[in-house]
Structure formats: structure tokens, C-alpha cells
Design a protein around this nucleic acid. Sequence first.
DNA 1: CTGACTGCAAACCCTTTGCAGACCG
DNA 2: CGGTCTGCAAAGGGTTTGCAGTCAG
Lengths: 166, 166
Amino acid sequence: MRKSELSRIDRRLEHLKTVAREAGLKLTHQRLEIFRELAGTDAHPDAETLFRAVQQRMPTVSLDTVYRTLWMLHDLGLVTTLGPQRYGVRFDANLDRHHHFSCVRCGLVRDFESEELDGLPVPDSVKRLGSVVDAHVEVRGLCATCQRDQGTPKNLQPSGTRGERT
Amino acid sequence: MRKSELSRIDRRLEHLKTVAREAGLKLTHQRLEIFRELAGTDAHPDAETLFRAVQQRMPTVSLDTVYRTLWMLHDLGLVTTLGPQRYGVRFDANLDRHHHFSCVRCGLVRDFESEELDGLPVPDSVKRLGSVVDAHVEVRGLCATCQRDQGTPKNLQPSGTRGERT
DNA sequence: CTGACTGCAAACCCTTTGCAGACCG
DNA sequence: CGGTCTGCAAAGGGTTTGCAGTCAG
């Protein structure tokens, strides 16, 4: 791991400590280790992968704690998820070039077209990772319905609220 | 549903028939209904949502058939999935602006940065859907490792191959 | 010290699979 | 008609939850 990586992790850890303190949450060893592990990779692990990594240094952690910590970090805004989260794979029969809007609160997804966004320039650094099949834009935001519902406290919504169906 | 929608669905159905015939697959009522339903929406339903919709017109379908049909369509290249598929939610502690490369075969995901791709112009049509939190590029492709492994027939890989961990 | 947090184990839910009967081509 | 496909039911695997003991603040 390079030096710049290290400082990046430290910076994120500081951020965690600040935010956690403000929210009155305890910084247990488990939480710190889980966050340190996640902050140190760009492989976007799932819960189980992260669990196995943390387990190396902390053989007593449990998978449940990893789940709980991840969603806690998510509620604090320190962590995001990839794709329209939760509730399995979602399918798309639209083979035309298009882009996606998805609501971070309820999981709604809608297509949109934009000539301006077609044919995005893919950097050479990416081409070194592999061959490119397609490139599209993912816009995340709050859909109109969820904007209206924002009376609900934004942290610690009932957990069922994470990722409804469309 | 508008007229243009209808013809779009018909066009996709024709495509399905052609491809299925070439592959020697049978076009059962269930498969046609499932595909028709999926081709007629841009809500990107998951399997269960699709199941409930098809069930209205065809009360005897089973959820298993929906799953099997979706993956079949996927193998035929008639359907794509959203996000780095399968195996639950994946997490990201990188709050800096960045973009994603993800391998359609093994599910590997890597971050990349690109000033050129930051600050993408979000069309007004999207702003009407809701408020925008962020916009980034998703590049899909084959990672270097999977490119090497392409000796394996690309259709009907062992189903475990759909979406490994990183 | 005390309430928040963890580990354990059981519950839950979504997804896949084996099998016998149904149906497309 | 034959092989594929479907529906059923059960298994499988990931995620969540209730509870009693533990630990950070």
C-alpha cells in the first residue's frame, strides 16, 4: 500500500470519528476495523468479503456485526452502495443506448436518453483494466415521491425502507 | 401506453423470436409473456415484481419460471442486469468523486478518476424525475482476467459463474 | 456504571435445483 | 412423438433479528 493510500485512510478514519461523536455512537474496535478495511480498498466488497478480511486481524468478529456496521455507516453517509441496492438483481430489456436515474431512498429506476451523454470518452487508465463493452451514466438522487416524504427523519428510517421495489 | 411504446415492444418481440429460433429454444407462452412484460417497462423490475405482473394475465406461472426465463434471456443477450449483479449489496467508502469499471463476467469493480467525466451535464428531463445527488459513469466490460479465460463457451457457463466476488 | 454494542443462533426471505408431468415444434 | 420446459416443493445461501452478556464513554 502506497503512502498516499495510508493518508487517505487516515483522513477517512478522522471523518468517521467526528461524525460518530456528533451522532453519539460508540467507536468500538469492530467498527473501526471494519471501516478501516473498507476505506482501504476500492474493490467494493460485499459484507461477507469484508467479514473475511476483518476476521484476519480480529478473529472474534461476527458477520452480523459487519452487516450492522455497514448499514450504520451508510446511515451516517460515510459509505455508499453500488447499483440500485438491495432486493436482488434487476433486469433491463432496453438494448438501445440509455442512461439511468435511480432514487437513493426507494430504489426506483428510470431510463433516460441524452445524445450529449452518449459516446462518453473512456480514459486509457480504464482500458488497461479490461475491454470496454459499454459506458453509461448513473444519476442518483431523490425521486419526486421520496422528496415529498422527507418529513420522515432521514437517519435510522425503519430498516424496511432500504430499497423498496419499484 | 403510447403507440411508439407498442411498436417498440413488438420490435423486441420479433428480435426474441429470431434469436430463440436460432438457438433452438422453444417459445412457450410463459416466456413470451415474461419477455413482453419486461420489454414494456423501463422500471427495471426484479424477478418477483415481474412475476406479480405476469401473474395477472397468466395466473399459473411460477416464480421459478420467471427466474429461469430471465437468465435465459440474459444468456441470449436480450436482457441486461443493473449494477454489479448478484451476491448482495457492495459497499464503497470512497466519497470523492469517482467512476466505476465493472466486469460483466466476474463482477470485479474498480474505481477510476477522470476530470473529463466529472460534472456531467444532467438533462432537464432527469431533473423532472427528482433531485440529483450525483452523476457518475459506469463502464462495463471484461476485466483482463476474464478476457484470458474466454476459452470457456460464453453462453451457458456454469451458473455459479454469474457474478463472483471480487 | 449504564446504555449501547456484540456474538450467537434462529428466523427470514430470495433464489436455485430435482423431479414428474405438460407442451412446443 | 421426443426432448424441452413448467410447476411444485424442498434445499440452499445470504441477511436480519431477539436476546443475554460485554464494553466504550
